[in-house]
């Protein structure tokens, strides 16, 4: 055992890693935003929608949550293109991530929405709020506040899962690592570097979600003070 770790490739290739990490960030931010939108709409449908729509959402959630993301990515990228719908790797990756993220977010948001008490809705009715106003101000924000920890860890998991999109040649961080290791033959070192970058990204995301939470759920009025 006389293996010497050699990180000298970094001097030359670090811009590749930065570019890869940047694409990972772009992919995941877009997927998180769209996935959250899909999940919220589906969760609202699942709680307040008609029987048929509830069933459709239920089937969507179960199908996605019980199949691997890898296969979902393959179906979007290879499957859709064989049916004549040619999509670039990045677009396919985002579609697959959004569909996947939407299913998980639906379940999380549903728990939040169901935790809003009936009395809150009745109070909103009494105040003469429209259905849309009630959903926006009375249901969604407090619901999201309650499940925010679960949501943000799901977002971090999505960022980590985006590494799987490297299998369809999306040039994100993991794909960059695969490329650099095949050029330099320093596979172990390359993946150590990338693991550290992912750890840094996880910390960054957690920090960012914490800050967003502070802004989004800042109480306008301190509890217990007069109206």
């Amino acid at each position: 055992m006389s293996y010497q770790l050699d990180f000298s490739f970094l001097a030359e290739r670090w811009p590749d890693f930065v570019a890869g990490a940047w694409l990972t960030i772009q992919l995941t931010v877009v997927s998180i935003a769209l996935g959250l939108a899909v999940g919220t709409v589906c969760a609202l449908t699942r709680v307040y929608g008609g029987a048929l729509l509830k069933r459709v959402v239920g089937v969507y959630v179960e199908l996605i949550r019980n199949t691997p993301l890898l296969i979902q990515i393959f179906i979007v990228y290879f499957g859709l293109s064989s049916l004549g719908l040619k999509l670039s790797a990045e677009v396919s990756a985002v579609i697959a991530l959004v569909v996947n993220m939407g299913a998980y977010t639906t379940e999380i948001m549903r728990a939040g929405i169901q935790s809003i008490q009936r009395t809150q809705l009745e109070a909103a009715d009494c105040l003469g709020l429209t259905r849309l106003q009630t959903i926006l101000h009375i249901v969604l924000l407090p619901a999201m506040e309650r499940v925010y920890p679960a949501l943000s860890s799901q977002f971090v998991l999505l960022m980590l899962a985006s590494s799987i999109t490297s299998t369809i040649s999306t040039e994100e961080l993991t794909a960059t690592a695969n490329l650099v290791q095949s050029d330099t033959y320093r596979s172990f070192e390359v993946y150590i570097v990338v693991a550290l970058v992912y750890l840094g990204l996880s910390a960054l995301y957690r920090c960012a979600f914490w800050l967003i939470g502070l802004v989004l759920f800042s109480r306008k009025r301190k509890l217990g003070t007069a109206l």
Partner: peptide, 13 residues
């Protein structure tokens, strides 16, 4: 905080 994919590559190599 690390993708499973990277754990797989690390143990493989």
């Amino acid at each position: 905080g690390t993708p499973l994919l990277i754990v797989l590559f690390l143990s493989y190599f």
